[in-house]
Each structure stands twice: as structure tokens, then as C-alpha cells.
Design a protein around this nucleic acid. Sequence first.
RNA 1: GCCGAAGUGGUGGAAUUGGUAGACACGCUGGAUUCAAAAUCCAGUUCUUUCGAGAGUGCGGGUUCGAUUCCCGCCUUCGGUACCA
Length: 954
Amino acid sequence: MQYNHKEAEEQVKAFWKANDVYKTTLDTSKPKYYVLDMFPYPSGAGLHVGHPLGYIASDIYSRYKRQNGFNVLHPMGYDAFGLPAEQYAIQTGVHPADSTATNIKQYRKQLDNIGFDYDWDREVQTCDPKYYKWTQWIFTQLFDHYYCTKAHKATPIAELVELFKTEGSHNVTAYGAEELIFENDEWNAMTAVEQSDILMNYRLAYRKESFVNWCEELGTVLANDEVKDGLSERGGYPVIKRPMLQWSLRVTAYAERLLEDLKSLEWSESLKAIQRNWIGKSSGAQIFFSIAESTDQIEVFTTRPDTIFGATYLVLAPEHDLVDKLTTEAQQADVEAYVAMAGAKSDIDRMADEKTVSGAFTGAYAQHPFTDEPIPIWISEYVLKDYGTGAIMAVPAEDQRDNRFALHFDLPIVEVLDKSKYPDAKIGDKVGTMINSDFLNGMKIKDAIKAAIKQIYDKGIGSTKRNYKLRDANYSRQRYWGEPFPIVYTDEGIPQTVPLSDLPVTLPPLEDFKPTAEGKSPLARIEGWLHTDHGSRETDTMPGFAGSSWYFLRYMDSENDAEFVSTEAVNYWQDVDLYIGGTEHAVGHLMYSRFWHKVLFDLGYVPTNEPFKKLINQGMIQGVIESIYLQKEKENGVNKFLCAGLAEAKGVEHYTAIPIHIDFVTDYGSQHSHINLDGIKKFLDWRPEYNNAIFECSKGTYQNGTFTPKSEASDSQLITHSEVGKMSKSKYNVINPDEIIAQYGADCFRMYEMFLGPIEQSKPWDMNGIEGVSKFIKKFWSLFYVDNALVINDSPATKEQMAILHKTIKKVRKDIEGFSFNTCISAFMVAVNELKKASAVSKDVLVPLLQLLAPFAPFLSDHLWQQLGYNGSIHHSQYPIFDEQYLVTDSVVYPVCVNGKKRADLTTSPGQDNATLEQLARELEPMQKWLTESNVVKTIVVPNRMINFVVKGG
RNA sequence: GCCGAAGUGGUGGAAUUGGUAGACACGCUGGAUUCAAAAUCCAGUUCUUUCGAGAGUGCGGGUUCGAUUCCCGCCUUCGGUACCA
């Protein structure tokens, strides 16, 4: 009998369901282990072969942990709010809730097919009001707290209000956007609106007019991590900077903790590096420059205070608050024109113009703090509004950009470092000794930085300062399909949170999903929803990362309607022990989740400071994009396709690459990938607009159903262009796991994905090796069943067979712990090959082997487990334990080398001393031609490892 | 440019407290079985070779009895980031 995977899988699936095999309870008698997958956004394209790679790895690990006595939490859910469903709604009128529900059904079916051990009773969907009730509640907590820079934690905003009432702002230790100074009686005299505005400077969730990434095509604002190369991550539409009144999260308050706590995490070095770069800490000094004929000061941030004597001008960002105020009448026209020009640019234009020097002089002068010389104040795009203070002191001698600017506008350059000893030094290299710098002269840079800061501090014009690249996160989206804000504005416009008793604020029904003309969310049109007894609702919705920033906590207690998670549950499950997911979430999801978690930690709701202890990045499985070359100019009014080879020879600029379904292509992904006559016909059925096109191949041409060979060729082969790229619906290269599972079975699919290579590595999908895994499964089956009959029996196992088993147990256990699943599969293959050869039929060998395989092939193993008459599921059985006694051998084989090159083998009994080993090796027959009486210079014998003779003249 | 990861047969990959390079699999070649094919099984498969051996883990050096593994200098590919003061 052959293993019938279809029947077995159906039966085992039913068994799992009927017996709640994967139900997880809060069982404190066992140690907990929490394995998490990055939950998917349920897109219309369904799951492709790349998605499950990480899921399979975590599934294997969770099953391994369960069989080792852990109470394992391994849940799954859906990141169900998002732009694509809403874009789809705008195009088709299908409500996002409906399309999302349909997609989720599809995903669920596909996930079930692969045989994951998820406890589906704990499923979360971020678009479910029972879930987003708590997303909204966490938002109210962010709104109601500020970051105390003394206690280094989130603190109730009410405490801040109390302080303002009694002492004013003097002793405030709140992380805030602006330093505000007022007395308590001033505070008490303020209107409610004024007080509300002041508090907005401190709340962790706050509303502020700021320059945001506006995407016109999507009709919404985007967060920094949602913008790539000046284009929106979703859709690739242009993004411009635009001032808007928006909700933001004060993630910058946690910059230092987010950076510092990275050290405690078991994440890959590269992922930590990405987060470190994104946080972008740098230390230096803040320096205040006074302005001639003005009481205003310009604050700059610099990492090189040592170069202060080389500061020959200041530059402000065009959007800097002081620009208007400082600009002299004579310069007004110039400055206004420049500010307007800079403001109109999109991010992408800005990047393209990076090398162009531009700027305008304000006409105003600042005073150098040490020399008292007047130094001109300029504005330029190369200074960014939201980094540092939005203003710099320019040191053209030591900064490449300042240098270019100074040369372009003919501004003075003062050298401050003698680099004569370093002829190769470039601008900005930190070498040499200080010159032209008064009290710093002769110092090394390190000392000069300290000395300069001390002088600056003593003069009361500045101090040391740290700076971060990290920006506060834009939290408003002008869209429908997201969490509504739990915010109602009073008639005066003061935002107030909706109390927990009134949560969730649910999304109202809607039919027209287009944004309003003023760029507001479509919610703004729904009068009945908009107005409440307390005022009118916020019409923006929350961004995609809202729901995903805390979903892992909800799994711990997903049905709880009284709390976001019970104290009991969170104290037991604590945090995620293992998180597997893609690097694409390196700065978005993973940064925001850490931030939210820290806030919840500060508030005492969770017992851990970090949410994800260990994180593994699975590589991407890429697709092969196949395309054919269409000549840009029609020939006699007819479209013409050309062989890739011919087109590339003539120059691809004359051709458009049209991506085609990989199903049409023969040998896709290889150098010989091509479409034959059959493929061309399929292509024409699919794209009838090319019906009478000419296909020119090396062997002839095809048109309107006939092939005209150049010589005797009988078939045409239009060579296609292959490249590795994203697997995506739009590239027609999505490989659906369902088809592979139908053909080979889920276990084979799972093992093959693991067999492809290390889990972290990215690779294009190919089916070249799946036969090998399929053969393995058949062979494994044949250890148990031969000709329809169970051959496994109670006979004792041989020593050799036990050695094979225990060698495999040792290797598989070690490799699972090291997340090296590809080598586990190899080990199983080796074991089966060897056991077959050794004619193993004993239960003592085969049953432990079956249990060892269970995490990898959950269907096959449970099926055989039942066949063998065991009760319950194999997945609740104890994982085999390695026993050293079976690996004790009576002989040991030494490689015998000459000058490090192996020349012979020495088989001998273990435990011999080095002298004996050397003597035995010398006497080996093959060694005679290498060794003479006198040529051995040295002999190295490493016990149980190898024997090496060093010979001269060799 | 900066930061990070990686370069091993025709292919995916294995081997690192320095100790037999190429496990396991795909592909290919030959054989068995078959009327034939599929499937299955067996053997071979890094390259060169005067069949003694020699070379070989991106390139060039170094340390060592011995280097895929450690050190120095390059090259290439992929990922992140980019006027960040």
C-alpha cells in the first residue's frame, strides 16, 4: 500500500478537531512557551508558497516544545484593517468588511491544509469591534499619559495638571515638543482650550499641526516607515510634505529605551542594526546663537562643537519658525520665493536634487559666541526641519555639504584643523590638531570637543545634547477601513476621550468609500455618526500598525470583554519567547510594538519591558518573473514579439517587457525558459488584443495560428526573459501551496520548504528538489508498511539500528534548537536510508523515529500513530531522548594525513595512547610511500580526531 | 557614501571551540526491471591528469603541522539607510 496522503490528512484533521488536540489552556503546572507568527494581512491573492515558510518553522518548533513538556501558546489571527481592501471597495463597491471576511475564509482554508497547530479559539481579527475596543482603549491610555524624564516612564497627565496648578511649569520633568514656561497663576487663568493646547505638548498621543507625508492618490497621510524612496509603500504613489493637523504618537520619548533595550534581545545583528539606524542616536552640543538687533536666539545642534571657530554662517530649514521674522526687507522677495519653491517639492524631487546647491540669504546676522563676529544667516533645503533644531552652524572647512554651499555662494571658509600629517584626509575626517581656534589651539579633537562644550556651558549658551533621527509617528489616516479614534471634540474643539464604558466606537455602515473633497475620511460624511451628545467625533482612523502593535497580548486572553488581557493570563504567558517573521517589519511593526509594550509596562499592565525575546527573520521566497519583449514600434501596424536573445542583442530599450503567466512558460526560471506554440496560444487567449501579433523566434515566426519555420524547424520557441523578484499577483507568478499539497501532501510540502535551505535565507521558489522529499516520505512509510501490511513488530533492535536512531535523535534535537531545519531533514533522510539498509522493523527503533518526525510531518506521524494502536495524538507524546550509551562503539576511524592532506584511514579500538596510534598509522600500507626513516619532522595526534605527519621536502 | 549579511560542484545546500571539503537532495551518465514508458532499484558524478598525482570553498596576502573556519587588504551580490548637522 502506498501512503495515501489525501485520505490520511482528512482523517487526521478530523481527529485533531474532534479531540481539541491544539487547545491551549492556562495550565500553571507546566512551563509556558509562546511561539508567535507575524499574522498576515488577508489579501485577495491568497497565501502563496512564501508565506508559510516562517509559519512551518514556528510550527515545528512549537510542536517540539509541546512534546518536551511545555505548555505552548501558538496562535494565529489576521491584520484585517488596511488600505487594499478599501481601494478595492472604491473600485468595486464591495464593502471592505465583506471582502476581508471572504479573504480570511480563504486564508483559513489554506492554513488548515498545511496542518498548523494553532489554537483557533484564540484567533484575533483586528477589524473585529471586540478586538479594536481595546486598541481604542490603549489609545486613550497614550492620550492620558506623558513621559516623565526623571522617572523615565509614562506618567498620568493628571499629575502634570496638578503640578501646573500648584507650581506652574518650573519643575516639570515631562518629555515634550516645546519648552514652555509659565507660572501656576498663569495656568489657572488659562481657558480650557489654552490648557488643552498646552497639554498636547506632552501627551504620548497628541494632535498637532506638523509637516506630514501626504499621499494624494491614496488620499491620506502616511508614517515615515510607510514611505519608501519618496513613494508610498502601498501602491508606489508620490508623497509630498504638507502641514496638517494630525494625531501623532510620541515614540521619540522612548528613543533611548528603545535603543538601550535592544541589547537584551536575541534578534539578528542586522535587524538590531536597522532599528539602531532608524533611531539614529548622535551626541554633541546644542548652542544658542544670538541675533543682531533681536532678542530671538537660534538654537543649533552639532556633533562637532570643536569646530565652532570654523562656523562662518548659519543655515535654517526653509520651514524654520524664525525665517519670517529674521528676513530683512531687501531679502524678502528672495526668501519667499525660495520657501515657496522648496515647499512645493515632493520627496522624490528633493532626492533627485540632492546634489544641487540652493539657498537664500535672509539678510540677518547672528553673533559668533566667542569671536563676536557677525555671521550671516541663510536658509537652505539641505537643512531639515525635523532633525535636530532645524538649524545648523555651518563649518565649511569640516563638512562636505557646508563646503559645497560656501563655495557656491562665496562664503568664507576658515580652516580649524591642521591635517598636514594626514595627506589623504578628506573633509570631515576627524584627524589633526586644532588651529585658528583661540583656546582650542593645539588640542586633539577629542579634547577640543570637551573643552568647547565646557566653555559653551560656562558662558550659558548651550550644553551637551543627544539627538535622534527617530520621529514621532503619524497616527491619522483619512480613510474608512481602520479603527475609529475614541475621541469626541467639545464645541470649543477640545478633544476628549470616550470612556471605556462607551467603547468600542464602531465603524458605521458606509456605501461610498471615496475620501471627501477636502481630503477628509469618508466618515466625515456620515452625519448621524459624526454628532454625539458630547460633541462631534474625530473622523480620521488609525493606521495599520495600531492593531498589530499589541495583538500578541490579546492571544493570551482573546475572549476577555472586561480587560484587554487579564493579569492572570499575562503574568503566566509573560511575553513572546519566539517570534518568526520577515524583515520588512523591522522599523514599522517591531518598533511600534516595542513602544506600546513599554508604555503598557510603565502603566503596570504587562510584566515585561520587551514583547519579543527572540526573533528570527525568515527569508523571502521570491518568484520568477517571466516576460516577453514587445517591440515598441509596431511593424506595418502589427505588434511584434521577439526572442529575448534577439531583443537583448538589439538593445532592450526598443522593447517593452510584458510579464506573462508563468504557467505558459516551459522551463521557467532557467536560461532556456521559453514559450512554445502551445504557450503562445495560451498567451493569446489571455491577451486577445495581441491576436494577430508576430512572434519572431530564432527558428521562425508565428502569426495567426501558423508557424513559418526558417529552415526545417518544426516548433517555435520564443525565449522569455526571466528575473527573480517578488511573488505577486501583478507579476503573474504566484505559486499556490494548495496545488502542491494536493499533489504531494502537506507533510511533503512542509518538509520541502524546510529542506530548501537555512530559514533566514531568501531564495527563488523552484520545485526541483521536491521529488527527493516525496521519495523520502514514501521510503519512511515503507519502513512501516510493505504490501498493505504493517511490518513493524516487537522484535529487539540491533545495536547498529539503535545507534542509527540515537545518532539521529541527537542531531535532530540539536538542529531544532539551532533552528537549522534543513539539516534536520537531511538527518531524517540519512536515518531512513541507513535503517532500510539495516532492515529495521523493531518498534524500539521505528516508534521513537516516528515521534522524532512528528513536528515535521504531523499528518503522516499521527496517522501511523493511530495505525499502530496508540491512544491520543502523537503530538502529545514525549519527544525521544538521546542516550549516549547507544553511540559507544568498539572501533574508531582516524584519518591519517601527510602535511594536512588525508592519505589513509586507520581503524582501531578506542582509548589507545598517542604513541600507539602513531605507530599503528606508520605501519599502514598506504603510508609507506609517504614516510621514510628520516623525513618525518613532526607528528600530531589529536585523540579521537586525526593523525598528521609533517614531512620535509614534501 | 554609511551600516548589516553573504560568496563552496551543473543546481539547492552540508561541514566553523581550526582537524577527512562537497553530507543530504536535485540534475546528469551508465546499468537492472519493462514490449515500452512511468515508477522503483543499483553504480558513478568538484576540476585537471602523463592515472603517480596535482589543484580546489569570490580574489590577493598572512598566522598554523593543518584554514571554508582566524587575521589584513580587495572584489561581487543582496538587504537597510541616505543632505541626519
